[in-house]
């Protein structure tokens, strides 16, 4: 009894304040409880971990093959997933290829989120002429089909991973700009933003404290779904020779170089495509899961 009363006395009045579960804690809890989203997160975590820790998981070099062991089937001794047309270990190539493919899929989305997101927030929050100028400029980019535009930009800049990243970023900016603009426009019209203005806060403070947190939801959902598109587009650019160059391992490029073997080793040939499909599908389903997880008051 004395122990209990002692601990009670030690508790500061501040610590007794009831703190409710925050919005993002609730969203995270909902997301974990959604079986589809949970499986997607596990799949993505495994593929990302495999790509990051590739050197620890395989003893082969992704660029060095053996002329005697070309196009071995799946399940070969020493080459679990077979070998490619130059006798390089497929598992190794897929793990290292994941590094490049995931990089080319995620970096443009992140860059577009930063650039398009800030422009969209500015356009939505300040409105008026600034909004017109920014949004009409985005409309010019919107007028082109996105894949065609990416191919055109990458083609004009020349083949290479860096140029492909630039091309994909430019293509992804307009849709993100539009989503953040509409989210910011909605939030800025709410009374609490007006109340914050009335308390004398500057625009940057209001955007940081009151606007960003409340527009993050839809932007996050949309970015996740864009990741699934970007992965496919990045692989596509490499497939047609505008992205990674041989002998770099990259899923889209691997699909291209293996396509001649599609009749002799169909299973080996489709493996890179299977990974592209898995990552893209997982991001897509995760985006859906995120949307419903955010559906809380």
């Amino acid at each position: 009894m004395t122990m209990i009363s002692e601990t009670q006395n030690k508790v500061q009045p501040e610590a007794q304040v009831h703190v409710s579960r925050g919005y993002w804690q609730t969203v995270w809890r909902n997301l974990r409880r959604d079986p589809v989203a949970a499986v997607c997160m596990i799949v993505l975590a495994l593929i990302f971990a495999g790509a990051i820790f590739a050197p620890l998981l395989t003893r082969y070099d992704p660029a060095v093959g053996s002329i005697v062991s070309r196009l071995k089937p799946v399940g070969t001794e020493g080459h679990i997933l077979g070998t490619d047309e130059q006798g390089r270990d497929m598992l190794t190539r897929l793990l290292y290829g994941g590094r490049m493919s995931l990089l080319m899929g995620t970096v443009p989305v992140l860059l577009a989120l930063v650039i398009g997101g800030s422009l969209g927030t500015i356009a939505g929050y300040f409105g008026g002429r600034l909004n017109t100028v920014i949004m009409r400029a985005a409309d010019v980019l919107f007028a082109f089909p996105s894949v065609l535009l990416a191919v055109a930009i990458a083609g004009a800049l020349g083949a290479g991973v860096g140029n492909a990243l630039v091309a994909l970023t430019i293509v992804l900016i307009p849709p993100l700009l539009r989503v953040t603009e509409s989210a910011a426009t909605q939030v800025r019209a709410l009374d609490y933003v007006e109340a914050a203005q009335a308390s004398g806060a500057g625009s940057l403070t209001i955007i940081r404290v009151h606007v960003l947190g409340n527009m993050l939801g839809p932007v996050l959902v949309y970015s996740t779904s864009l990741l699934s598109v970007a992965i496919i587009m990045a692989a596509g650019l490499s497939f047609i020779g505008l992205g990674a160059k041989p002998p770099t391992a990259e899923w889209g490029l691997m699909l291209n170089t293996l396509r001649t073997a599609i009749y002799s080793q169909p299973l080996v040939t489709i493996l890179p495509g299977l990974f592209i499909f898995l990552v893209s599908l997982s991001f897509n389903l995760l985006s859906d899961g995120l949307r419903s997880a955010m559906d809380v008051s």
Binding site: S20, Y23, D191, Y192, E194, A195, V209, H210, G213, N214
Partner: peptide, 13 residues
């Protein structure tokens, strides 16, 4: 303001 719920930021305590 009139709307008590719209005038509080839902993400802040």
């Amino acid at each position: 303001f009139q709307d008590s719920s719209a005038s509080l930021n839902p993400r802040l305590t």
